[in-house]
Design a protein around this nucleic acid. Structure first.
Lengths: 336, 336
DNA sequence: TTGAAAGCGCTAACAC
DNA sequence: GTGTTAGCGCTTTCAA
């Protein structure tokens, strides 16, 4: 069967005008019931489907959201994406995905592909490179082209737009307290992501908690995961450590393994908490107690805010929503 | 600054016609060099960006691909998606994502959102429910509306379209042989996904290999992961097992744990191989030897075929490309 | 070298 | 109740 039957075709077949067909299919009461029925039947039989592009051009609304994420292989982002898709679909929107792969250049290009009218708004999380260079000029296009934008998780402080973040500071603060309540006095913080905003906040939360507890902070910053084994072993051999808080999931898993390799029992000798509730956390041995960021929730919330903004339901002032974290207790921490 | 400056606006400002502006910006030699320069400069200064929707309507090409995946939280699919995004971007295409969440209804709706002209082609992997019901009528729309479609990994045999699959049969066959070469004689196959096509093929490959080796096949089919511990324990207590091949990653991880809980050493007593090379496989203890399906490669290949099809570079006959698997040896199998 | 006009497919204000 | 017309923003043929 051929494709792409249009209003025009239907009109010609029935010898009516294009607008009559259009109105009939849109159930416009201007058109008589009989005509409507006849036209609908014909459209049905020809498998007519309205051309979405034409509708978009006319209505100046694409019903699609542009999403830019730094990486899809990081489980956190695929969870957020899941939340975004669910919520967008629920509200009748499609999503277009671009990956920045943590590069500023690709992030900027992605924004360019969105400011040409193909989407009604943007949801993004800032690329690592961009967070390092702090060059945010490409984000200004959102405002220049009147394209609503919401940033989630990794946000640019100096850009004025709606934001959804996790309370990383608070999450780290509470995790540190949690470890202290387990009688840990020597809590080390491992940070392989100190160069991105969330890593910073987590470290700050840890340090603040440690200070409030009148303990000694001990931070292990690393550039790469492969340094963790060596550096952590050195520390374990030189000082007492009875708890580890890791800034992400993988470093927590590594910490568990390094601790065990050094003869420590987890959780009896050392309790471990990591950030991010992912597959590895759930399935590691022992399973990992984590600070969950509710990734899916972040995605849904971002969509809600973006669509509310698009539909003019929000005050002019940018909205900043903070999603609370909570601790999911598993077997890498002592039972209370 | 305001938004959405159009050709019309530029034309009015310079007192030239719209078509002149259009041609100038497209570097059409019909327009004099000076006029071109002047117009480009003006466009630049106003931050003019051509409206993509209008261009699409005119050109009848959206330069976007519709992707329907059953689940994004399954790492395999997010890896494929990664491959799709990379290759699509490279070739100047955007991607729109829909999730079927393994439901036929959602899969069908997703196809509907694509046949209205919003994409130039579809890439999809069949939902679990659809594979069960075997109701494939919604896939026929692709042909009816002349919308090129490529299916990957989980495909519908009775639908004629381009396909990219993994050689699951061969992968399982080789993995079984691999285990046999490790001196395993009692190899059990755990299949929690016997209801989807890939699960079937893997089982067939295993059975064929076992037969060719003149061994006794032993298949443990389960409906859900939580049955694995009980069922496998029962088997381990009743008969000799020296190797386990699992139809997916998670069941392999579970198998390792169950074996260890029952006092077996992995890999000394029992070697374990799983399908899918994911995070868990890499980070489990011991790390898991896997049959890798090269998910990213599947994604890239799907895009290549789809775009070649769209651009008329392919023979009329549907193309079926089979991506080879290979075994990634880690610590859950004995060293040779 | 430039411009007028038609048309992509659809909607809607306004006529008849 | 139905049709005419204009227009969304762009490209492109044809005429000037």
């Amino acid at each position: 069967m051929g494709s792409k039957i249009t209003l025009k075709d239907l009109a010609r077949i029935l010898n009516v005008s294009i607008s009559t067909v259009s109105k009939a299919l849109n159930d416009n009461p201007e058109i008589s019931i009989e005509t409507r029925a006849k036209i609908k039947e014909l459209a049905e039989s020809y498998g007519y489907v309205p051309n979405n592009i034409a509708q978009s051009l006319k209505s100046k609304s694409t019903k699609t959201i542009g999403v830019i994420i730094p990486a899809i292989l990081l489980e956190f982002f695929s969870k957020v994406l899941y939340g975004i898709e669910i919520e967008a679909t629920k509200r009748g929107y499609k999503i277009i995905i671009c990956l920045s792969n943590e590069l500023q250049q690709k992030e900027s290009e992605s924004i360019d592909t969105f400011i040409n009218g193909s989407v009604d708004g943007i949801i993004l999380s800032v690329a690592e490179e961009t967070q390092k260079t702090k060059n945010h000029t490409h984000f200004l296009k959102s405002e220049k082209y009147n394209l609503p934008m919401v940033m989630f998780d990794r946000v640019a402080k100096d850009i004025s737009c709606d934001k959804v973040t996790v309370d990383d500071f608070e999450g780290a603060y509470e995790a540190t307290q949690f470890l202290h309540e387990l009688d840990s006095k020597n809590i080390i913080f491992i940070n392989p992501i100190s160069n991105i905003s969330v890593g910073e906040s987590r470290e700050e939360g840890y340090v603040k908690a440690i200070e409030d507890l009148s303990l000694e902070p001990l931070v292990l910053k690393v550039e790469h995961y492969n340094q963790i084994e060596k550096e952590l072993t050195k520390i374990l051999n030189n000082q007492k450590v009875d708890a580890i808080l890791a800034a992400d999931e993988y470093s927590a898993i590594l910490a568990i393994n390094v601790a065990r390799l050094n003869g420590y029992n987890v959780p009896d000798d050392i309790s471990v908490i990591g950030f991010t509730n992912g597959l590895m956390a759930e399935h590691s041995i022992p399973s990992l107690t984590v600070v969950s960021q509710h990734a899916e929730n972040i995605g849904r919330t971002s969509v809600e805010i973006l669509l509310d903004r698009i539909q003019g339901k929000l005050p002019e002032q940018p909205v900043h929503k903070v999603v609370k974290t909570n601790i999911i207790e598993r077997n890498s921490t002592k039972k209370r």
